[in-house]
Design a binder for these strands. Structure first.
Length: 432
DNA sequence: TCTGGGGTCCTAGGACCC
DNA sequence: TCTGGGGTCCTAGGACCC
């Protein structure tokens, strides 16, 4: 029987690579992409990594260094990354229909059906095609499980001579080689082992992937719950995390953002809560969903230890809805409740959950609907439809809720955005 | 002065029911 | 009003992911 084969296709430095598609002049130059609010560095080109720029480093601290070293800085352009991601995924699907789109820049392929192929060569071919058709370089790791495929793709990125593909299955027949390989993987780098678990494992002397793999099941489950056990099984080559080809429906929608500067006024916090509520509700309708609960949270900055307050509050509706004014009403009310004067708040957020498909709602034959409430529902739907249509056509915020406020002093910082690259999405097709 | 945003899953514990 | 075990459902909190 042949070995199972999962491939992880991982776009290299994805956001940076996307920016380079439109700026070929930056091909061998150091570049970075910043998070929202120009907060921190979330993508680095290899040249930037070589300079020692750290992932997640606060931009304000790195700014002089970046300037000195001629690093080109981009603010994130998510519509662009989303579009390029779609193109990459479409190409991958033509090579292998058993596919899980794992994130904006990663996909798992299940290559079991390709046993007559030389998988390494096939992966090379995939890689070359993606690069030719999109300009995005990818790394591909192949292994008997998803967790090992992740490791394989890491190895691949670190080994220049791998030329973009690393096939662990080739070595599977020589256990000593696999042992040696896992010996070199720190436990903290394993997919599914985060900071807390890594620290815990360290305390018990488990520092490498090989050591984790060789612990007994009961111990693993006790220390790391079943998810940790699955991870260890996967390291042994026993596939325990299945390919998720049709991801389950979304369960929640969140809209939250850090303020441009700390907020101390209740009205400002409330305006932000309303604005995020409006956005979350737009997303809800765009995806044809209804929500049964809305939550609002508020928090101070972790970087100000002397001034800490975080709280959240939830409201559940009698029946699922997508009506913005209703969300807005409850969001404001809850914010009033959790806001405490005297704190410098850093962030508020809104979460819609208990989601269900709107079309599953229609045609409830058992419910007795009065013509009055029927008419009410219809006019609500029409109102939402019209506002969404106007905002889509003329830009977000054309029709705005009074509660969002006009000045919006709490808004994300924009000063550092480089105007040239915040291109309106509608302009991009002209470039192509 | 300035440190992202949006998700999922697992578990423990409480409420409720029989 | 007391006694008991066990099941289900919900939620908050923790941990992880990109």
């Amino acid at each position: 029987m042949s070995l199972a084969a999962y491939a992880l296709v991982d776009c290299n430095n994805f956001y940076c690579s996307c920016e380079r598609v439109f700026r070929p002049d930056l091909r061998d130059k150091p570049i970075v992409v910043l998070s929202n609010n120009d907060g921190c560095i979330i993508s680095r080109s290899n040249e930037a990594k070589a300079l020692g720029v750290q992932m997640g480093a606060p931009y304000f601290k790195q700014k002089p260094f970046l300037k000195r070293n001629n690093v080109t800085v981009f603010s994130s352009n998510y519509p662009l990354y989303g579009d390029l991601s779609d193109r990459v995924m479409k190409i991958l699907r033509t090579f292998c229909p058993d596919m899980e789109v794992y994130s904006i820049d990663e996909a798992f392929l299940r290559l079991d059906g390709f046993s007559t192929y030389n998988l390494t060569e096939y992966a090379q071919h995939i890689r070359n095609t993606v690069y030719q058709w999109t300009g995005i370089p990818v790394s591909i790791g192949i292994a008997p499980t998803k967790t090992l495929a992740k490791i394989a793709s890491h190895i691949c990125k670190k080994t220049p001579k791998s030329s973009g593909v690393y096939n662990m299955n080739d070595k599977w027949a020589q256990p000593a080689q696999i042992d040696a390989l896992l010996e070199n993987v720190p436990v903290s780098e394993i997919w599914g082992i985060g900071r807390k678990s890594a620290a815990k494992l360290y305390r018990y002397g488990v520092t490498t992937a090989r050591q984790l793999r060789d612990r007994d099941n009961a111990w693993l489950q006790k220390m790391l719950t079943v998810t940790g056990l699955y991870t260890a099984l996967e390291l042994r080559g026993v596939s325990s995390i299945a390919l998720d080809e049709a991801p389950a429906a979304r369960r929640s929608i969140r809209s939250s953002r850090s303020f441009g500067k700390p907020v101390t006024e209740k009205t400002h916090a409330q305006e932000a809560a309303v604005a995020y509520t409006v956005r979350a509700a737009e997303k809800l309708r765009r995806e044809g969903l209804l929500a049964t609960t809305i939550s609002v949270f508020i928090k101070t900055s972790v970087h100000r230890p002397g001034d800490q307050h975080a709280e959240y509050c939830t409201h559940t509706f009698d029946k699922p809805t997508d009506f913005t004014p209703l969300f807005v009403h409850h969001a404001s009310e809850m914010l009033q409740k959790i806001f405490r004067a005297g704190h410098q708040y850093q962030k508020v957020g809104v979460l819609l959950s208990g989601l269900e498909l709107k079309r599953n709602q229609q045609g409830s034959l058992l419910e007795v609907v009065s013509t009055e409430s029927q008419r009410q529902t219809e006019s609500e739907a029409r109102l939402m439809h019209v506002t969404d249509a106007i905002n889509k056509k003329f830009g977000r915020g054309t029709v705005q809720y009074a509660g969002e406020g006009l000045g919006q002093p709490w808004k994300m910082k924009q000063e550092n955005l480089s105007p040239k690259y915040t291109t309106d999405w509608s302009k991009l097709p002209e470039i192509y």
